[in-house]
Design a protein around this nucleic acid. Structure first.
Lengths: 107, 107
DNA sequence: TCAATTGTTCAACAAATTTTGAACAAAGGT
DNA sequence: ACCTTTGTTCAAAATTTGTTGAACAATTGA
């Protein structure tokens, strides 16, 4: 099992980030992480959103786009939102997304 | 030829908007419109981005997501960014996207 | 009326994405 | 050593997305 690869902050591509977010499952994952006050979550926290295999796939998409960081910790993987990096690369984007996402939850 | 359909502002779905933007061609179209100071553009203005048919497809995606308004004018179609509607529905999103897109152009 | 301009629609195709299940890998606990 | 937990990898199948070219529709101008 090889170390998970993450793009450098400056290598994040806008279209790739938006494509990664343009999926209900992945948007829900990011929403949970954003509401989680920066605390990393294990993959199993997202199991209600899909199958084990499906989540592995979606989390890889998010990681490759630069949205999340994955840190192996024993047999688990700790997933965290790359908030500081995203704010640096795309100022204001994450905040506006979370505001928008929050207003959708109500409806 | 039936009138183009547009979602109401409150019916715009975040994931659909992001999916529409998660494509280089469509992101380029929106970028041009955003830099165009609100002036509507005809489809032919985007011809350097792809074929006539392809643009028709991509513009429909943008229209269905709520990003652009399409107004038939004679034999042409005037395309405009729904900036006010987007700012109302997703405050700050468009601005952060255009800032980010601008900073990508340089690289 | 005829031709040119502007853009859409359709069907076929190609390509990328997503889902599924089985098998595997690494670490921890007993 | 064995079993459990946690998550990945692989290949196949299903689905969605994007592209192409031919035909069409509406408007404009000569």
């Amino acid at each position: 099992m090889t170390e998970p690869l993450h793009p450098e902050t400056e290598d994040m591509a806008l279209a790739q980030v938006l494509a990664a977010l343009g999926d209900e499952t992945r948007l829900a994952i990011v929403g949970m992480l954003a509401r989680g006050a920066g605390e990393p979550m294990t993959c199993s926290r997202f199991l209600h959103l899909g199958s084990k295999t499906g989540l592995s796939y979606h989390l890889a998409k998010l990681r490759e786009a630069g949205l999340v960081r994955v840190r192996p910790e024993g047999t688990k993987r700790l997933i965290s939102l790359r908030k500081a990096d995203l704010d640096e690369r795309f100022p204001g984007l994450l905040d506006s997304l979370m505001t928008a996402d929050g207003s959708e939850q109500q409806a």
